[in-house]
């Protein structure tokens, strides 16, 4: 599991337990007073701290921020994403990572030597891959398969999408949610920061169950006791 994923999942879990968490709309006053500092998704307007987007507002000490619960994936350096190969060029692979700009995986970022004539043996069009974002540029996003466990082509299984803003909850605190789902279903699961989830299980039934629970968690991030409810579904 990528360390970036763990830190953001801890973040959201703290919020879930915080009693001050509330749903706010853009422009809504969250708190008043000079003591507060606007964090991510919030801004100061005179005496007030107001929401800069729709989401869950929370106070962490003096800092007030608004966590997105909806919206498209916004790539950041270090994110681990799941993408689909859409084209092969002479110097690398073009990867759809479900964001505005396609990702590019240069040939020399593959984990082992791949000759130019055998590129489609390693990654063919339509294949799925777990990759790390190492640069977000105006021209596009650069990907790498080096420097991380679990990066590379995914063999078998299938991918489906959850709303990217729900990924931290699907992963759970220190990866607890996804670990529970893996353990109880026997499936291998990789959650990309871009909302794409790869799943492969011992049986079709195990895969069906694992997906059902993951989608339930993603659809119900606001529920109290979500872990217990997911556990119940897993039986």
């Amino acid at each position: 599991m990528d360390s970036k994923q763990i830190s953001s999942s801890e973040e959201l879990n703290t919020n879930v337990e915080s009693k001050k968490r509330k749903l706010v709309v853009p422009g809504e006053v969250i708190v008043s007073g000079d003591d507060y500092l606007p964090g991510e998704g919030a801004r100061r307007d005179g005496k007030d701290v107001v929401a800069g987007r729709f989401g869950l507002a929370e106070e962490l000490g003096r800092v007030v921020k608004v966590l997105a619960i909806t919206g498209a994936f916004i790539p950041k350096r270090g994110n681990v994403v799941i993408g689909r190969v859409v084209d092969i060029t002479f110097s690398g692979w073009l990867i759809d990572i479900d964001y505005a700009g396609s990702g590019f995986l240069p040939l020399d970022e593959s984990p082992r030597f791949v000759s130019k004539s055998d590129m489609d043996q390693f990654l063919a069009i339509g294949d799925i891959v777990v990759a790390k974002i190492w640069a977000v540029k105006s021209k596009g996003i650069d990907l790498s398969l080096q420097g991380g466990k679990g990066l590379g082509k995914l063999e078998g299984g299938f991918v489906f999408r959850v709303p990217p803003a729900r990924v931290p909850r699907v992963i759970g605190r220190e990866g607890s949610m996804v670990a529970m789902i893996k353990e109880k279903t026997g499936c291998t699961v990789t959650v990309g920061q871009n909302g794409w989830v790869w799943l492969k299980g011992p049986t079709v039934d195990a895969e069906i169950k694992a997906r059902k629970v993951i989608e339930f968690v993603a659809d119900n991030v606001q529920l109290e006791g979500l872990t217990e409810k997911a556990e119940e579904m897993l039986g």
């Binding site: 339509g126 294949d127 895969e207």
Partner: peptide, 12 residues
């Protein structure tokens, strides 16, 4: 998403 279906997903 606008991402097309993958080879692995079709096989599954």
């Amino acid at each position: 998403s606008s991402m097309a279906i993958s080879n692995q997903t079709i096989e599954s």
